[in-house]
Design a binder for these strands. Structure first.
Length: 583
RNA sequence: GCGCCCGUAGCUCAACCGGAUAGAGCACCGGUUUUCUAAACCGGUUGUUGCAGGUUCGAGUCCUGCCGGGCGCGCCA
């Protein structure tokens, strides 16, 4: 709807060469906004003020010449200049009526932009290590990533959702060792459990799942003989690494791999199930192990080498990240020959671009912010652009129960899992609460509020509006006064109350909200919009009965309600929240 | 010490590449239902946007310094 005004202003500018020239590097789209105050009309443009400086003219004079150059348009009833030089546009009510019809005609497609060919976006999120179930912090990444993905798609972009499975490296060995130790226990070989191991109950569950019939447990002495001390006397890392070496020795590399891979796949599958239940679905699960197997890390390092982007120092291989603005150079191959995590990540992000994705979005925990520059440096060095990679940081989640902050730690087993949270507050409330706050704000997730079924709980407030409208339509059917949609469309000019006008304006804004929220990767913009829309609805509902005797007015109001219901459902859909027909 | 993020009403948070009088919800007080779901609505109270400067027609938003909170600064992942 905004384009009506934008186009009009643009046409006017074209007839004013001097202004058009000054406005050339100005995005006209950004000069037109919804007004905050209804007395200022429906849309306002600040273009005259923006052009004041480059043209060295008085903003009100510029505004006057633009207004005089505006062509007549049936959809605009009044244009006025206000304040320091705003141009305010009052739209013809028929423009809003047309928009209502567009909502009903488009249905679930309303608010969605036409598909764009480019850029193709790769959206990577969560990517939690497969060392245990997802906890509530990952839940925020899941809800945020999924909503941003939906928003981008609604805005017309092609989005590929990917989960990077960190299934290589030391953490996986520790996982394998943890499972191995629990398996020994189940065979009566009880070694002290290492401080650095994964001690959650799910490790025992994995042992119960896997087939170990053909395996023979070693003696306790063979397991413990000659190991260094564990913390607190000794070093926890050294101890668990020694234990891992011992496990490989006693079970053979293949035997140990069996424990590790079984554990890994069991946990990965559990994470996928958990996310599927949460409505978060990925297009691909990308294995870090596969990067090594297919030599893509070596290939990436070769590319760097050919481009003269590697050097040797102190026995290690370094990447000169400082040449691309990073604060220090980074090791890619350690002196002991082992490639670093950073080497995999360079290869992984290189591979993303090689697979044909133009724009890469990584959703990472706030503790990874120091990592952004080196990843971008990697892309630059590989012949792409650092700016191809965009990183959205998600701040931490604190869980509150009975007003008390809860502690979370995967390693200690004292965590609260996403699954537990979903069971307690439900998927809808969880999806909604996770994205209610800006991703760069810390989130206090209050379990007591999320489980409250009252107006304290905004997710219920919005869902209730949808159910309320559904109820009105059911009531109409029961009372034999079913909605005549064609008649309703013809009688929309009967919608004249302040609440109805406000609702029509809010509904017409939905596509703009989608676009804005997608651009800013900000689902909370949509959350606030829905809350405002629904507040207007509840207000109107209380003030004016819908199922009135006057069939024309009734049909007109039902037409408005059908449009509201549609927009609520579309908006909630993007957030991954259900829109119930009854509650 | 260096770097990044944050600081808005009593609380939790909004505020569309800088725009008109900084907005919601909660909390608190009072009211509304023989009528489509009261999980709702209506009315009332709330600000030195952490502090101090600067940029300009205009700053919560941009710049500088300071204060406070979070996170990061490995040949860990």
């Amino acid at each position: 709807m905004k384009h009506i005004v934008t186009n009009l202003v643009n046409q006017a500018l074209q007839t004013l060469p001097e202004l058009a020239e000054a406005a050339a590097d100005l995005s006209l789209e950004s000069t037109v906004e919804r007004t905050r105050d209804a007395s200022h009309g429906d849309f306002a443009s600040n273009v005259a003020m923006r052009l004041a400086k480059p043209t060295r003219k008085n903003p009100r004079e510029i505004a006057t010449s633009i207004v005089e150059a505006l062509s007549d348009n049936a959809q605009i009833v009044k244009v006025e200049i206000a304040g320091p030089g705003f141009i305010n546009f009052h739209l013809n009510p028929s423009a809003f009526h047309s928009e209502l019809e567009a909502i009903l005609d488009s249905g679930t497609e309303y608010g969605r932009q036409a598909k764009k060919d480019a850029p193709k976006i790769l959206l990577e999120f969560i990517s939690a290590n497969p060392t245990g179930p997802l906890h509530v912090g990952h839940g925020r990444h899941a809800a945020y990533g999924a909503s941003v993905g939906n928003l981008l798609e609604a805005a017309g972009f092609s989005v590929h959702r990917e989960y990077y499975v960190n299934d290589a490296g030391r953490q996986m060995d520790i996982l394998g060792t943890s499972v191995w130790l629990r398996w020994l226990e189940s065979n009566g070989v009880t070694a002290p459990f290492p401080t650095g191991g994964y001690r959650g109950d799910y490790i025992r569950d994995i042992v119960a799942e896997i087939d170990t019939a053909s395996l023979k447990a070693p003696k306790l002495a063979a397991v413990l003989d000659g190991l260094p001390a564990d913390a607190p006397e000794g070093d926890a890392d050294a101890f668990i690494d020694a234990l891992t070496a011992r496990a490989k020795e006693l079970q053979g590399d293949e035997g140990f791999d069996y424990f590790r891979q079984q554990a890994l796949e069991s946990i990965r599958a559990d994470i996928e199930d958990d996310l599927t239940e949460f409505g978060v679905v990925f297009d691909s699960w990308y294995s870090e192990q596969s990067l090594t197997k297919t030599k893509r890390i070596d290939d990436a390092l070769d590319v760097l080498k050919k481009r003269d982007m590697l050097y040797q120092k102190d026995g290690a291989t370094w990447f000169p990240a400082t040449r691309f603005g990073d604060e220090k150079d980074r090791v890619v191959v350690r002196a002991n020959g082992v490639k670093t995590y950073f080497a995999s990540d360079i290869a992984y992000h290189f591979d993303k671009r090689e697979r044909g994705f133009d724009h890469l979005i990584d959703i990472l925990g706030a503790d990874h912010h120091g990592y952004i520059e080196r990843l971008q440096a990697g892309l630059d060095a590989m012949g792409y652009q650092g700016s191809d990679l965009e990183v959205e940081l998600v701040q931490f989640v604190s869980l509150y129960r009975n007003g008390k902050k809860m502690q979370m730690s995967t390693r200690s087993g004292q965590f609260d899992t996403l699954r537990q949270l979903r069971a307690e507050v439900g998927n809808d409330a969880a999806r909604f609460y996770y994205v209610m706050r800006s991703n760069d704000q810390h989130l206090d997730f209050d379990l007591d509020v999320a489980t409250t079924q009252s107006n304290d709980n905004p997710v219920f407030y919005i869902q209730y509006a949808h159910a309320r409208i559904a109820r009105v339509f059911r009531k109409a059917d029961e009372s034999d006064i079913s909605w005549n949609s064609d008649n309703g469309r013809r009688k929309l000019s009967m919608l004249t109350t302040n609440q109805e006008k406000s609702l029509m304006s809010a509904l017409s804004r939905f596509p703009e909200i989608i676009e804005l929220a997608a651009k800013n990767r900000a689902p909370q913009t949509l959350v606030h919009y829905l809350r405002d829309l629904v507040s207007d609805f509840h207000s109107s509902y209380s003030a004016h009965k819908v199922l009135v005797d006057d069939a024309d007015l009734r049909d007109a109001r039902l037409t408005l309600y059908a449009a509201i219901k549609c927009v609520i459902a579309n908006g909630l859909g993007i957030l991954g929240v259900s829109a119930p027909e009854q509650m």
